[in-house]
Design a protein around this nucleic acid. Structure first.
Lengths: 177, 177
DNA sequence: CCCTTTTGCTTGACGCGTCAAGCATCTGGC
DNA sequence: GCCAGATGCTTGACGCGTCAAGCAAAAGGG
């Protein structure tokens, strides 16, 4: 099934062809993710937060009144702890996150979304939902299903993190709650 | 076609379901791209460069002896100019890039891969090709084709950049030459 | 020619993302 | 109890990625 000349290839102004279909797929995947990321970022930025900050707030909204320890937040993103600490620092400075030492285990720091953060995230629910649909608007239902299946398989082919020996699944943000 | 309970959903430790299939697709896309990016990064990092630096060097190798102005490099990545300037600064400091004012248009700065850079990139060709295949190893040929088609359509649904009114296609790195 | 505008790039400031180190707190073995 | 190790987080350093501002060279108009 030799392709005519793929979209990616034209986009990149290439001289030489791809070395493999896989290479083409990898490049398409990374480029597409960047495009989509930017689409979503434009939705939240006018509200004074970044996409990553929005992710954190959404996670914390879902955690509710019990809050969530820092590492737990990090696990739901795809990020290392240090990044999370500083992300939370910035959100705390903006009054969108409150932190508190856990009394039962004083090593942990519990994080909470403030009421202002909840209002902000609630307000962004509808626009973000629209942005998600818009980002993938070019796909018909069948294509979306196929995409999802393919992406799931790609991820399932790789250890959760590469760091930890082989613990269970990790998670990213942008989670619905 | 209600899915049983998607992979993503489990990975994220969710309580509530996705708001839409599109949301699920967007999250899967971003997460998968992150995973793949890390797989590739691990290949080049032992050689003392980052994935982005590798991208630039590959582009410059393809440009050959005429070199490429800074902005042209940026266009083949998905990045703004300032990032490219500094990327090139670091590569120049490492002796992998040489820069020179263009005599015909003294505003431009032509960039070249040094022989050391060429050797490095040549040396990485095979490992990177293997990594590309490895990254998508879980996909069968048909799935890879479907993925590619879906990704191309997603990108085609969005203006090249959102900044420039509507100029022609942009490009990313990781390009074969 | 001169003067405005455009083009090509650099700089400054800021928010990530990651690694390596460091510090406090808990845990398990004794 | 006590102490070595594990755990949870923070800090420092560095490489991106992006916006806004700045500067020099080129282009275009008069």
């Amino acid at each position: 099934m030799t392709q005519p000349q793929s979209a990616i290839q034209r986009e990149i102004r290439q001289r030489r062809p791809f070395q493999s279909r896989s290479q083409e797929g990898v490049i398409a995947l990374l480029r597409t993710a960047d495009v989509v990321r930017r689409v979503l970022a434009r939705v939240v930025e006018p509200h004074g937060i970044t996409l990553q900050q929005y992710n954190v707030l959404r996670i914390l909204r879902g955690a509710g009144a019990e809050g969530l320890p820092t590492l737990e937040v990090g696990e739901r993103m795809i990020e290392q702890t240090p990044g999370v600490t500083r992300l939370l620092d910035r959100l705390e400075a903006k009054g969108l996150v409150r932190r508190k030492r856990c009394p039962h285990d004083r090593r942990q720091v519990l994080c909470f979304a403030t009421p202002a953060a909840r209002r902000l995230v609630d307000q962004l629910d509808a626009p973000m939902d629209r942005a998600d649909r818009d980002a993938l608007r070019a796909l018909e239902t069948g294509e979306l299903d196929a995409l999802l299946r393919a992406l799931d398989r790609v991820r399932s082919g790789h250890a959760p993190r590469g760091h930890a020996p082989q613990d269970r699944s990790r998670a990213h943000a942008l989670k619905p709650t």
